[in-house]
Amino acid sequence: MKISPEVVSKIAGLARLRLTEEEAPLYQSQLGAVLDHMADLAGLGAAAVEPGAGAPGLSSVLREDEPEAFQGREELLANAPEREGPYFKVRKVL
């Protein structure tokens, strides 16, 4: 399957990945080669087959929502590249 440079750039944007000038054409050709192999799935898109999502014998489980104090709070915050007191500091969003 041919992937255009525009599709590569759109996908990289959606994936929040800044690609270098060397990476973009490399991934363009490699993704095309991998998707060529996936052509064998083509017939299945419209086929009336039950999809096999998740693992067998498991269903969504619900339990009482009982809050528990997390013991590693300070350790967790210590990982922040930038913090202010008990908050993660990020640059302005708006």
Partner: peptide
């Protein structure tokens, strides 16, 4: 990065059914 690109592509508008949907069906088979 290659796999994030591939996965983002397979889930993106216009390709989702042909790739992700078909792959789930293959998983069932």
């Amino acid at each position: 990065k290659r796999r994030i690109m591939l996965g983002t592509f397979a889930l993106s508008e216009g390709y989702h059914e042909a790739y992700y949907g078909a792959a789930q069906k293959a998983r069932g088979l």
